[in-house]
Write a protein that binds this DNA or RNA. Structure first.
Lengths: 325, 325
DNA sequence: CTGAAAGCGCTTACAG
DNA sequence: CTGAAAGCGCTTACAG
């Protein structure tokens, strides 16, 4: 029997007599033969390798880890295997990782990119594989983007605080440069402006939990202190929690944070947050890549994933008498 | 110029005149040529693909995510790329994933295996690639194992509770079948026995946080109530925290948990825990695989990674008068 | 130092 | 329905 006949059986091609087909199948079983997908891809016209790559800032970070897992699961269901890397948002590492994956002929890329990718992502990949951007877009790179609705979420959260009666709300933000930070601030500002009655106190560039703690302590004890805080991010929320407990006002001052914090329900009061849905982002991104590989040529599109408000107490505190006009 | 000369330059082989070498390098640069590692591997004698696979229960779980990231980082530094999968501890998924990776000719495997792997792991892999087991061994599979010192850690933690004066300590455990669960219980028992004066209360098979909460409430309110609890795992610790706060005894009854819990320091009292070091486990496992690929033929070995006690308050509570003999 | 020939495991494009 | 020949991008094993 020729090698070609075996090839036909393995690839499920037509035109093999049932009898020979059965013999081949039996032999494969007996010998434990496993086809070599790379040798196969080498000669195939489409050169697909059944491999996809995921690049995130930090694979150990809960947000990225959930997103990553969702991608891997979807790909697995399609017989595609996933390569991954952490970039720590460092351009050099990011670029090297993309190059390494491309040299391995990945069929597609899912990337949580650093801003610097604007300068090279397009040209390095050069159409060799579809790219789907997650968590944030990259200026100038035309590709599908799947991310949370940072702005809409922040606006919704701020409105939630205003609804409790707060009229002076502080926004605590981190590095100004990040896309999500800008979007969240914009959402906050939109809500304050739309209310027509509330005042915003904006504190940006907070480097981490300690900086947030200090800022909350300072603002809360100053004149015209805010009656509620909206923290734009995980670590800042933890800092705010510490500050409010430190000054004993955790039950008088409102707090709502972007991104869920672990054990947020075990604290007293429970910490109200805006939770992202990284698994959904990952799954959608994976399906975008698959669609592109399937020949979808529609223009690059943006998928916004809803963020959900989890009310646990801290965001439902009404302003105390003292704080009211 | 022949293709062979180019090959020599690309692979860094000797015997190329500096002049031709320079010309080749220039052309590579200009054309953006990227060697195809699979075509290369196809003809090479060692058939290495520069690919390694990681299988864990759940890539989104913090323990597995940290371990995974560490592996990926070490491999990246060696020019090796990492494939990964979540198995959810389901034999069928696990087996299919191993087969998929093997068919892609991975050079090595790092596996957090389910007990069922005992029946097939060896024969499926069949020496095609070195295996390193993480988090737990698999009965009958002879391979390097890198895992936490569950037993030693549990013993140490229990001794820590006894040191505070506790004489009646409860152990709350989950599914009895798991390796780590058994080891942790053994460590606990060893400490109690060695003390000569303390009594153990053992409660196993708790399915999750709610079951643990119920168990703590029941035990704490019964006759001869334990003055301290040792929870064998993450979720059980959270359940215990809830129970103790629910009955208002969080400052009177000791609590120490295996596995760190997020925000453990924000609670009041802070929750003392035994923290594993997944990143270290991952890094060591990665290096074991690399060593095996480098030709290390020494017998399979076991690396125990220390677990560290983080004292935050709940584990340093002395038994209240009432609880003493 | 250089290159022509063969071959890795597979598929394509034909001819029967 | 079947198979012989050529070729995917590379390296091996030679001969010069």
């Amino acid at each position: 029997m020729s090698i070609k006949t075996v090839s036909r059986v393995v690839t499920g091609e037509a035109n093999v007599s049932p009898e020979r087909s059965a013999r081949v199948t039996a032999a494969i079983e007996r010998l434990g033969y496993v086809p070599d997908p790379f040798a196969s891809s080498l000669r195939r016209s489409d050169r697909r390798t059944g491999t996809v790559a995921v690049l995130v800032e930090d694979l150990a970070n809960p947000f990225a880890a959930s997103l990553h897992r969702a991608v891997v699961d979807v790909m697995r269901d399609h017989g595609i295997v996933t390569l991954s890397a952490s970039t720590d948002d460092q351009p050099a590492i990011e670029r090297q990782a993309v190059a390494a994956f491309l040299s391995r002929r990945v069929d597609g890329l899912i990337v949580m990119a650093s801003p610097s990718a604007a300068r090279w992502l397009d040209s390095v990949v050069g159409g060799a594989a579809p790219i789907v951007l997650v968590d944030r877009p990259v200026r100038g790179v035309v590709a599908d983007v799947v991310r949370s609705d940072h702005r809409g979420g922040a606006r919704h959260a701020t409105e939630h605080l205003l609804l409790q009666g707060h009229r002076r709300v502080a926004f605590l933000g981190g590095r100004r440069s990040s896309f999500s930070a800008r979007e969240r601030l914009a959402g906050f500002r939109a809500a304050i402006t739309a209310s027509g009655v509330a005042t915003a106190v904006v504190e940006l560039g907070l480097a981490g939990s300690d900086a947030a703690e200090a800022a909350v302590r300072r603002l809360a004890s100053g004149r015209a202190a805010p009656t509620a805080f909206f923290t734009a991010q995980n670590l800042l929320t933890l800092g705010a929690v510490r500050a409010l407990r430190g000054i004993g006002h955790q039950h008088e001052i409102g707090l709502l944070g972007f991104d869920d914090i672990p054990a947020g329900d075990l604290l007293d009061p429970g910490i109200s947050v805006l939770a992202q849905d990284p698994a959904r982002i990952g799954a959608i991104a994976a399906n975008r890549v698959l669609a592109r590989l399937d020949g979808d040529n529609s223009p690059a599109d943006l998928t916004l994933v809803d963020v959900s408000l989890i009310a646990r107490g801290s965001g439902e505190i009404a302003p105390s008498r003292k704080g009211r006009p």
